[in-house]
Simulated assay, not measured.
Amino acid sequence: MTTNKPLKRHPALHHLSHDHHQGLLLCWKIRQGFKLGIDPQRMKVYCEWFWENHLQAHFEEEEKLIFPILPEDNPLVKQALSEHKRLRRLFSDWENVEKTLRQIEEELERHIRFEERILFTDIQEKATSTQLEAIAAQEVREKFVENGEDPFWVIAT
């Protein structure tokens, strides 16, 4: 029986993996919202907040600092950029709120798993110590602070 070993992430990339954790929690919150029968409009408000205050900057950081470690024509980078583009569209097009929420939940989770398991592993293996130091030097960001205005994912007691 094979077991999956935990991924060892270089310290310079820890903050991005923490961002990914928050993104996976967003996916869980959306699933939980549907499970609890929450009005999709409430979930949309939270997703817009999450995009504006968290995910948008995360994508920009990856695109400016992380992806350039690999060649521009690298298929993994191309896939990540394509997924970023698709997710940007989803977070800006709310014509059918329920459908968009379901797509965000599905596509964001798949994207994060791809970056953590495949892309970041490759980047970490190929990055020079100078490149990793440059990434670490940029890590002057505030920690994630939850928006507690409407925690729709919590079961009221």
Rank of each mutant, 00 (worst) to 15 (best):
S92A: 12
R113W: 06
Q138D: 12
K64H: 05
N53Q: 14
H18C: 11
K35N: 10
Q32I: 03
I118A: 10
G23R: 04
E116M: 07
P68T: 08
E139C: 13
C27D: 04
L70T: 03
L90D: 02
F59T: 11
T130I: 12
E149G: 11
V145C: 02
T130F: 12
F144E: 01
D19L: 09
E106F: 05
R117T: 11
E48P: 04
T121N: 11
T100Q: 12
L132K: 03
P40C: 01
W28N: 03
F59V: 07
R89S: 13
K126H: 14
P71M: 10
K5A: 13
Q41W: 09
R89W: 01
A80Q: 04
F114D: 02
L16I: 07
P71W: 07
P6C: 05
K35Y: 13
P75Y: 03
Q138L: 13
I38S: 06
Q41K: 15
D19K: 07
R86F: 08
E98H: 00
E98R: 12
T100E: 09
E62P: 05
Q138A: 14
I155A: 15
F50R: 08
E125H: 13
F144V: 05
E98Q: 13
A134P: 05
T130Q: 15
R141H: 14
E98A: 15
R102C: 00
K35P: 02
D39I: 01
T128H: 08
W51N: 09
A57I: 09
N74Y: 03
H18W: 13
D73R: 06
G37I: 05
E125T: 14
K78M: 13
I66K: 02
K44G: 06
K85P: 00
A80N: 08
F114C: 01
P151W: 05
H54L: 03
E72G: 06
N96W: 00
K8W: 02
W153L: 10
E109S: 15
G33H: 01
I112W: 07
L101F: 09
E133P: 05
V145D: 07
G148T: 13
E105C: 12
E133S: 12
M1W: 11
T121F: 12
V97Y: 06
I135T: 09
L119N: 05
L90T: 02
P40E: 09
N74L: 07
L70N: 07
V140H: 14
M43P: 00
L16Q: 08
E139P: 00
E109T: 10
E72W: 02
R9I: 15
R42C: 02
A12F: 05
E125V: 10
